[in-house]
Write a protein that binds this DNA or RNA. Structure first.
Lengths: 204, 204
DNA sequence: AATTAGATATACAATATGTATAATCAATTC
DNA sequence: GAATTGATTATACATATTGTATATCTAATT
């Protein structure tokens, strides 16, 4: 007697809805409380579900955190990074990229909590790093477009890694106190200009 | 009947010795294992003492971490920062400062674990931040010496914060994969030169 | 020999993640 | 309408960790 399989359109929709509610509650917790008080119990209560439901939906604490990150990434405007590849002026594209990242880091303050979680959970950190690899590839392509032919690979790698560090969350967080999002963006953009300058004037 | 007070030269020496042994074991644990496995039980066993002894000596997990940081700071060469204030050439002093910090971050890989602990324990983070305030003051003084009189305060603040971020541990960690300590230092130094350049050529 | 500080032994409380099993409840299929 | 199924819940348990409390032990000091 094979068990009959259910497709359940309405039921999976309800499950997806609770899933979203849990993610929203987790984001809110990361935003308002610190990561220290981020427990599955707290999140579950905030979402109006049981702790066990969280395990059913996300498998583990790490799974929940990854889901939160993916949710932020989806609504954070990172998809706009694609348009930088179509811009004719690579320098303007670099400015735009910095702008997109500043907006991303500042959009949802829960990312601070996520980065804190990365520090304690190495496997979670790796999962996030894999997602960020696309960012590095994009940046590498951009630098290659921007650099003179004579620019040595080592200098290009330096520029890529430096800009990667400059557009990372820790740098954004370090520059944020006492500055608006736009001011932080301007500071980082200037620093990035300086980072690529040697690639464009190799003779100096 | 007032209890007679003991000075105990030999006994406090023995206590200091076990204290050092616990700190050493904690550093080793942070270096070899990740912060995730940094428990007082693990550290105590590695030091050959009981977990209760750790509480007797450091009061709490946070106290132990602070002691580890202080130990690293003491033997990490940060005291050499003082000599940068006596150097006549402020640009050379800046290079020297970057050098000292690169050496510091790379000297003991336990600092990575300490920064991870900062992410989870806000009070510990604040304790470390207070210790790092001296670094910011030194940098501010250096920038003031280095900048033209016409350089606006806003530009100085930008330079200070940017260099502060560039010489922080996250930047060092981001640039470290695939680079020697000296190479990382060179990249950061170049970026710092670019950060102070506008302060010296305000007309451009 | 009495005293004392440091370390230990043992126990307990509180919180957290994660697993296991049975029960509930509404949506779906027959 | 009745049986079935997936999602959720209730309850219980195992494990690990921080932190506290109390009494004991040991070696240094008076």
């Amino acid at each position: 007697m094979p068990p009959r399989s259910y497709v359940s359109p309405g039921r999976s929709a309800a499950a997806a809805e609770t899933r979203e509610r849990v993610i929203a509650a987790a984001s809110r917790t990361l935003r308002e409380e610190s990561i220290a008080r981020f427990s599955l119990d707290t999140v579950a209560k905030a979402a109006g579900v049981t702790r066990l439901t969280v395990y059913n939906q996300f498998g583990s604490r790490r799974g929940l955190l990854e889901a939160v990150f993916d949710g932020i990434a989806q609504s954070g405007g990172l998809h706009r990074l694609a348009e930088t590849m179509t811009m004719t002026d690579p320098r303007a594209a670099l400015d735009r990229m910095v702008e997109i990242f500043c907006a991303f880091w500042s959009r949802d303050s829960a990312v601070g909590g996520l980065h804190a979680a990365m520090a304690t959970d190495p496997e979670f950190a790796e999962a996030i790093s894999e997602r960020n690899e696309r960012r590095r590839k994009l940046l590498t392509a951009l630098i290659d477009r921007l650099a003179d032919k004579s620019a040595p690979p080592r200098a290009r790698k330096d520029a890529v890694d430096l800009i990667f560090a400059l557009t990372s969350y820790p740098t954004f967080a370090a520059l944020s106190p006492g500055r608006s999002k736009e001011e932080v963006c301007a500071v980082v953009q200037t620093a990035c200009h300086a980072a690529v300058a040697p690639l464009q004037e190799p003779s100096r």
